[in-house]
């Protein structure tokens, strides 16, 4: 299993906002343990999904030169369960981005069908902060290699850009 908790970007506006989706499937092992008999998407993994959506958004704001690390979760509230067959939607908005780091506001909704009727309903809100760790206040040095934006994360961003070019040729 790969540690990727978003499937696709639906919207990406560099420096402003991004929206990604994740399809929840019973084929995912963790749902069988969380919780037995009542499979629901763990809130902790939705925080991770928001961190990945926002992290790539924050990374793009500095052309992926910075190592963007989740540093603080200011707020995380959840009001609805997400179940297999649902699609989680992570919408992240940049509030601040500076040389040292960034803060974002995020909302989570779920696209779910109830008796065949598709609805999008609120799930939660998450506000978080990222550090550009090469500019940390303690002056700690990290390897030059950008270990944050590996090929898998970059592929998500590139796929969105390819889709956009296909949809809007020229």
């Amino acid at each position: 299993m790969r540690w990727i908790w978003i499937d696709k970007f639906e919207h990406f506006e560099v420096n402003v906002a991004a929206r990604a989706v994740k399809n929840v499937s019973l084929a995912e092992e963790h749902l069988h343990d969380h919780v037995p008999g009542i499979p629901v998407m763990p809130a902790s993994l939705m925080i991770e999904g928001m961190a990945q959506t926002s992290g790539i958004l924050v990374g793009a704001a500095r052309s992926f030169r910075e190592k963007v690390i989740l540093a603080k979760i200011n707020k995380a509230t959840f009001s609805r369960l997400v179940r297999p067959g649902d699609q989680v939607v992570y919408a992240a908005k940049i509030v601040n981005v500076t040389e040292q780091g960034a803060s974002i506001e995020g909302t989570i909704t779920v696209r779910t069908s109830i008796a065949g009727a598709l609805q999008e309903l609120p799930v939660g809100t998450i506000d978080m902060m990222f550090s550009h760790i090469d500019n940390n206040m303690a002056g700690t040095r990290f390897p030059d290699f950008n270990f944050v934006f590996n090929a898998q994360f970059m592929e998500l961003f590139e796929t969105y850009r390819r889709d956009l070019n296909l949809a809007m040729p020229g």
């Binding site: 540093a71 603080k72 200011n74 509030v95 601040n96 500076t98 040389e99 040292q100 780091g101 803060s103 902060m129 550090s131 940390n136 206040m137 303690a138």
Partner: peptide
């Protein structure tokens, strides 16, 4: 902690409608 200083800086900017240039407060 260190990230809190950045958080405080962002929130002060918002609360008071000010801009805190890099290196001015710290």
């Amino acid at each position: 902690e260190s990230i809190d200083y950045l958080d405080i800086q962002f929130q002060l900017e918002k609360a008071f409608g000010i801009k805190i240039p890099k290196g001015e407060l710290t």
